[in-house]
Design a protein around this nucleic acid. Sequence first.
DNA 1: GCGAAAAGTATGAT
DNA 2: TCAAGCATACTTTTCGC
Length: 363
Amino acid sequence: MFRIVAHVDMDYFYAAVEERENPSLHGKPVVVCMYSGRGDGGSVSTCNYVARNIGIHSGMPCSRARQLNPDAIYLPVRKDFYTKVSDRIMRIIESHADSPDSFEQVSIDEAFIEISKTCKGDFDCAVRIAKQIKQEILEQEKLTCSVGIGPNKLVAKMASSEQKPDGLTVITTPDEVAAFLRDKPVGKLWGVGKVTALKLEEMNIHTIGELARHDAVELVSTFGKKRGAWLKASAQGIDESPVIPRGRADQIGRIVTLPHNSSDVEEIMGEIDMLADDVIEKLHERKLSFKQVSITIITSHFKAYSRNRTLNLPCSEKETILTTAYSLLSQFLEDNNVIVRRVGIMVSGLQETSSQTTLSSYF
DNA sequence: GCGAAAAGTATGAT
DNA sequence: TCAAGCATACTTTTCGC
């Protein structure tokens, strides 16, 4: 029996939550921004459809958005608040999966559920579940979402984007899958961004259908074995990847834009100190230790670098992050004559602190 | 010269 | 020209034998 997977994607999530919290925003262009702390510099995180119709979109510089519409409502992100809303929505979606193991949260506003066992090949059943989820989210959270249903995650994900907002798109048979993908530009394929799309265009591959028919050997020689094969399969709507609960992120990082560009280690360390507080807090919440510390440096010319170090033992102290970051940063600045614009830190190699024994407990 | 681990870069989605 | 912050996948280099 073939699989049935549903993908639920909240509509313009951050901006929708803000609209819900402040109904006077309805009908106005709402733009949720991440600010850099330097004047009004920053990027658009999400915006509602009124704003999108003016040409504003995610990732766009806020200053550009303001040029397009100075009168739009510009709000700073409130990530912690959206996360609380998201958590409740995710419980609703999860409750309709075959089992808790058949739920996969992809990001703050989207998730997959496997409903193969529940629906046993019956797509009408899948549609009923989708409508039920949409209704529960609307009633309990006053928010809309778009749902895609397909024979795998790839198709479900792309189907959910087909009709937005408040959409429901069902793609069932292999013929429907083929027709659904065929004429779309390659950039619409899930996992193909600007860089890959451009490379494909250069190979004279413009649509997903063309990609599906393209010589696999050439794709592999251009993109490497794994990614080449993945492109070919995806273009044909083939995706065997299972719906699996995601462990929490296996790295925790924070990055900021400096108040002003600098090459001074001590000054930059002042920012890193604050970043380390955040990282440590998240780490403690989850009772985790880390084995690697890395720093990211973005120069005044927007070139990105990273340096990292593996520790001898798992560790969970802020002091370790600071001394390691200091060492990496001062070495980097010695070797590279650059001016720093943004700086970030990250810990990885995470493991449970509770299960490990600290040296002192031996004595 | 090999496989594994570490280090560093590229990419994507919001 | 403008340009946030985050995670992950992928590639290259180094390590231990």
